[in-house]
Nucleic acid binder design. Structure first.
Length: 484
RNA sequence: GGGGCCGUGGUGUAGCCUGGUCCAGCAUACGAGCUUUGGGAGCUCGCGACCCGAGUUCGAAUCUCGGCGGCCCCGCCA
């Protein structure tokens, strides 16, 4: 039957599973079919294809402009870290050692000292900092780098969310006072939140990690956490107040104005290509990805509806429109080998936020048809209003993507009053708000009994009397959930 | 690191249980041509695969053993 046949074909070109039915299969298919990423013969590593890499470049551009305004500079440090450096800070080594890849040989020659492939760069960077910093006049030192890192994890990889090699930025700053360093760490978190909420349209919870969940070697870790459709949390970025934990073992000292030698105060912070995975997972639907307009490389795709008779005029008009809308970097899909229907599906799969159709009927009426990617609403727009209307529609798409995700987050937060309710909510894949004693011991047993982890202690936490889990006194409520 | 499943063209699969019908079928992708174009059009021709090794057998994609690789479930992580 024709109908059956058609279904088969569609199934191979587009997504064969629904997001609400099998999220992880949906995600894997979408990533590959929309050409965001692909696998290689290196297990656990992936290729970022142009559709993903251009999002990364836009993230870089936005974040660079933010931090450069506040005096940060970009640099590059080596990929390799000699073992003796890597081991200087005890908690840090213990945290990272299980997933470090080591270089042991060059050709047939065994190296005198093993080299770690950076899982993060605190140690190699702080060796240099100890040489560069002598006086309070050298401070603050505000550096950042955009690099790849390697964390050789054994849990099964997931494109973007967990790969053995990934791209990120890591900022490393040095300050004269504790207060200044703390402000820096908080300032960076606020810029992360701005990037993620206002550009990627993903709402997050903001706060502090528990001592058990903080970055190995940090004094405190500040975090933003998003909720994925599965109900699992995804850590979107962290900013660490390192205190003097690294400046002491690495000897980062300076002479203050009154001539006293002091250890410096430091921060480090990072966001990664994981954010691209979050965009795909949070906003995508059963037709494919939806890239929020403010982060999309191409804000719209122009699809001419070509018939033999009117072909010339349509294409001419389409090119005119492309030029007129160039600030939105449109794609003009004038390939003749594909039908319009094919192109609709193609650009929807890839997540272009807006589609512009122009056919003979539109030409007559001096109009075009705009179709939104998020709610599929179509609108006929007169040519003279086009630029304004496109701008308006893109803003509206950006806003509704954020609001939809925000609604999901809010409706999946559950406040609980007992251990029983806690376990029930976790099993229902909710983000749970509960009174918690914040003792490491208690945190461990929650983890092993429920598979949930403490995601964060919110900045303006509600007070609590006792810990829902162990019954001991608690100061405040914090969030728990399963996590990626 | 412990348990379960699976390896067939670029991709997704049929065949395997019960060996011969398979120098491997179908779809999609890819190349050439005609024809079409407002929601993944049609036709014709073409390209392209049994993970590796050993064994059983007259005969292996199919059975056995070993290796390699992948996927799923449990302890650490942007």
């Amino acid at each position: 039957m024709a109908c059956k046949k058609e279904e088969d074909k569609r199934s191979l070109l587009g997504l064969t599973v629904k997001k609400e039915e099998d999220l992880s299969e949906w995600f894997t298919q979408l990533v590959q079919k929309a050409q965001f990423a692909d696998y290689t013969s290196v297990s656990g590593c992936m290729v970022l294809r142009p559709n993903a890499f251009q999002i990364w470049e836009n993230i870089q551009q936005i974040f660079n402009s933010k931090i450069k305004k506040t005096g940060h500079k970009n640099v590059y440090f080596p990929l390799f870290i000699p073992e003796h450096l890597f081991e200087k800070e005890k908690e840090h080594v213990e945290g990272f050692e299980p997933e470090v890849a080591w270089i042991t040989h060059a050709g047939d020659t065994k190296l005198r000292e093993r080299l770690a492939v950076r899982p993060t760069s605190e140690t190699i960077i702080y060796e240099s900092y100890s040489k560069w910093i002598r006086s309070h006049r050298d401070l603050p030192l505000l550096l950042n780098q955009w690099v790849n890192i390697v964390r050789w994890e054994f849990k099964h990889p997931r494109p973007f969310l967990r790969t053995r090699e990934f791209l990120w930025q890591e900022g490393h700053t040095v300050h004269a006072t504790k207060k200044e360093a703390l402000n820096e760490a908080l300032y960076i978190l606020s810029e992360y939140v701005d990037l993620v909420e206002n550009y990627l349209a993903i709402p997050v919870l903001k706060g502090k990690k528990t001592q058990g969940e903080k970055f190995p070697g940090a004094m405190d870790t500040f975090t933003m956490e998003a909720l994925m459709p599965s109900g699992k949390a995804l850590q979107m970025g962290t900013s660490h107040m390192l205190g003097q934990n690294f400046s002491k073992p690495f000897g980062i000292k300076f002479l203050s104005e009154n001539g006293k030698e002091q250890f410096a105060w430091q921060t480090s912070w990072g966001i990664s290509t994981r954010l691209i995975g979050a965009i795909i997972m949070v906003h995508g639907d059963n037709r494919g990805a939806i890239i929020p307009p403010r982060i999309a490389e191409h804000k719209l795709a122009i699809i001419p509806i070509v018939f033999d008779k009117s072909k010339k005029d349509i294409l001419k008009k389409a090119r005119e429109i492309k030029e007129k809308l160039k600030e939105f970097n449109p794609i003009l899909d004038d390939r003749e080998i594909y039908s319009p229907g094919w192109k609709f599906n193609e650009w929807e799969l890839k997540g272009i936020p807006l589609r512009l159709e122009i056919g003979p009927k539109d030409l007559e009426k001096k109009q075009v048809v705009l179709v939104r990617r998020d709610n599929h609403a179509r609108k006929e727009v007169k040519e003279e209003n086009l630029e304004k209307e496109v701008q308006k529609t893109l803003e509206s798409i950006q806003r509704s993507l954020f609001l939809k995700a925000k609604k999901f987050l809010k409706s999946n937060i559950v406040e609980v009053k007992s251990k029983k309710e806690f376990i029930k909510a976790i099993n229902e894949n909710k983000m749970v708000l509960a009174g918690f004693c914040e003792r490491g011991e208690c945190e461990e047993s929650i983890k092993s009994e429920t598979s949930a982890t403490n995601r964060l202690i919110p900045f303006h936490a509600q007070p609590a009397k006792k810990c829902i889990f162990c019954g001991k006194p608690a100061k405040r409520k914090s969030y728990f959930s399963k996590a990626y």
